[in-house]
Design a protein around this nucleic acid. Structure first.
Lengths: 185, 185
DNA sequence: CCTACCGATCGGTAGG
DNA sequence: CCTACCGATCGGTAGG
């Protein structure tokens, strides 16, 4: 049983690497099977479909972001400190599971119902919390901006920086520049 | 002749819409044919291959950015004014040909040689010029940052904002917030 | 620009 | 987990 779960996770992680490298659509089950050392049909002993792999990657990533956000959001600290913690959260996850984060960011659109709705709902919840932190910060005069939706989108874009860019830099330097961009603002 | 060129361009533009919507790999020539009102095989009277469509989209977009960059880069104006002009350039192109810009940003990795090398070279040239503007601005004390490569990557990410985000906002508001992020820095 | 068609590859199943 | 295989779909060509 334990072995089975581990192998399934190994297949999912390998799928994340391939989806990141070639994209979900351009990756075949045969590619995946070759990389994990199985015959193509044997993959289906561990998963039900190709899309299942994408669902697992996207939803586990979404869960991790949601949990991390809640830990920050409900703390009694300033909006500025929350934004800093949020930057760290994104960097921690991106450095830990870079392939999954890239797939989560770029390939989620290939999800179908009912998983798609779950995904979009989780994301919307996450976005609402970021926006709340930003508007709270503006109220107490710590952030300056005019259009919350635009600033939110810019920040999300900076935070969802893909693996390929992130792996070239050192985490502390990245954190310093991002913090400067986001919280000096 | 003129009709032929126009129809080819119509096919390319329709392809850009589909590639943006579903991704290059997940878009079939049959999808494209249906959308332009032709039989699948008739598409090949206008193009040589599916990848030709991607090449045309990516390279024409690259050309437009390169030309716009040169117009800005060789002017005798301050680094700060160059960055503002660069923001305008990106917004102008993104609002004008949103689908092509998204494909240019997200689907170029499906290009093969020899086009891929041309593409990467054009991009590298473009990036060198942005970095030069940033370092020039730092020298005269107008920009503040520590790591040029990180700041460059953050700015490129903000500028290459995809169509889906951009179409929700008004161009002037976007320009204002982006300018605030980039040149106050 | 169409009809007719090609070989290759796809996701997935049957049965052991 | 494998062998053997399925129907569907792919990019692309021949020939008119």
């Amino acid at each position: 049983m334990t072995t089975s779960i581990t192998k399934k996770q190994f297949i999912i992680n390998t799928a994340a690497d391939l989806f990141q490298e070639r994209g979900y659509s351009a990756t075949s089950i045969r590619d995946l099977a070759a990389k994990v050392g199985l015959e193509p049909s044997s993959i289906y002993s561990h998963i039900r479909s190709k899309e299942d792999l994408l669902s697992e990657i996207c939803m586990s990533c979404a869960d991790r972001f949601s949990k991390g956000m809640n830990d920050i959001y409900f703390q009694d600290i300033s909006p500025r400190k929350k934004m800093r913690a949020l930057i760290q959260l994104h960097l921690d996850i991106a450095f830990d599971i870079p392939a999954s984060v890239t797939v989560f960011n770029d390939e989620w659109r290939f999800l179908h119902e009912p998983v798609l709705s779950d995904f979009l709902e989780a994301r919307k919840e996450y976005e609402k919390k970021i926006k709340k932190i930003l508007t709270d910060g503006k109220k107490v005069g710590k952030f300056e901006f005019q259009n919350i939706d635009i600033v939110f989108s810019i920040i999300i874009k900076m935070l969802s920086w893909s693996h390929s860019a992130i792996k070239k830099f050192n985490k502390e330097a990245l954190e310093a520049e991002l913090t400067s961009f986001i919280t000096k603002h």
